[in-house]
Design a protein around this nucleic acid. Sequence first.
DNA 1: CTGCACAAGGGGGTTTTTCCCCTTTTTTAA
DNA 2: TTAAAAAAGGGGAAAAACCCCCTTGTGCAG
Lengths: 210, 210
Amino acid sequence: MSKTILIVDDHVLFAQSLQGLVNSFKEFKVLGVLKNGQEVVDYFKAKKPVPDIILLDIRMPVMDGVKTMEWLRENHPDQKVLALTMEHEEEIIIKMIRMRCRGYLLKDIEPEEFLFALECVANSGYYMNEETNSALQCTPEKNKFQNLTPREVVFINHACSELTYKEVAEKMNVSPKTIDGYRESLFSKLELKSRVGLVLFAVKNHLVEV
Amino acid sequence: MSKTILIVDDHVLFAQSLQGLVNSFKEFKVLGVLKNGQEVVDYFKAKKPVPDIILLDIRMPVMDGVKTMEWLRENHPDQKVLALTMEHEEEIIIKMIRMRCRGYLLKDIEPEEFLFALECVANSGYYMNEETNSALQCTPEKNKFQNLTPREVVFINHACSELTYKEVAEKMNVSPKTIDGYRESLFSKLELKSRVGLVLFAVKNHLVEV
DNA sequence: CTGCACAAGGGGGTTTTTCCCCTTTTTTAA
DNA sequence: TTAAAAAAGGGGAAAAACCCCCTTGTGCAG
């Protein structure tokens, strides 16, 4: 059974040739090619077949890769995403890794390594290379993120607002007690003492916009 | 009675000639010339005569103007500071204005205008020119800052940490109830609903580092 | 195939912090 | 020399933080 891929890239020529390349690997099959994040949102809202992996370009018009990733994390927390980009931008790499994208590829990657990366991610793992690792090394809290669950990441985003936990609970459609659970587990994982600490942590690590 | 000035600038040649210029105005007298923020700290710690106005360069080795301003706000909240800099950097202007520096001058200013700025500040006012005003206009909350008291600004810095208000009270040598007063007045001035909101506000407006 | 770990969701109750309203004293400015 | 704010603080309600505890489902290793 081959894994399904959704390609999201505004450079049509590149996206088309990438589609051909991916389809030439028999373990993978391209479900579709989209031009920006808004089309991704529409795709999911149209209840089309969910891809195993999304190949996501970062620089795109209308709705860029980071925004798309944020939307995915809110709405499809477990969606595997492999970021694909032209430039090595540390800030963005960090941001994407924080949002649990499964890997970060530069577009000048060799086809063999590209296939290898796809396989890594497909087998429920991550693909980490030079770029991503060096980007992560500059942040001391790097290990802490690995342990965050998708729900916890969503919670952090809500917690960094003036909402009370009760209101956050409503937004996330869970009981306040569940929120208390997220809070407690985050505080222990990240060695925090207060909600203020959580906000500062999130800001420092680009988990939220300011 | 002439007003006293302390010049802080690492460019010795410039600082010296500035000293000559200031001393040529009979309303002003230079108390000393320092080379960086650390020397300012030492100056105050040595209990030397407190100047009416500090002319503070931004780019300096060891301890720059912003850091110096932070230290001054913690330790001498009412010290009048006139920022003096080579480049027009909006981020820094905003930061300095937030910390209630009394004005922001570019080093290519005409001597007459320089004198005018000094007089403005000396007479317990502010000197605002094109640069500073345009920098402030880009932030929607610009007016809100004008009303912050020095104690409140110090409080904000402490509040943006994992300290409890009780601990902040100890740091500021006041009762927890006084802290509560600062908090409340800030909440109403800045239209905030929670400490988290205060932290977000401070981060957004560069009142604290992240 | 049977535990084991862990994510997700929920509960009860206690302590601490936060938040709001209100008063007094001290500075500061008009 | 009044009138304003700032600084300091009190009482009490509400929220947050912090303890324990539980169930269910999933995925993974022995």
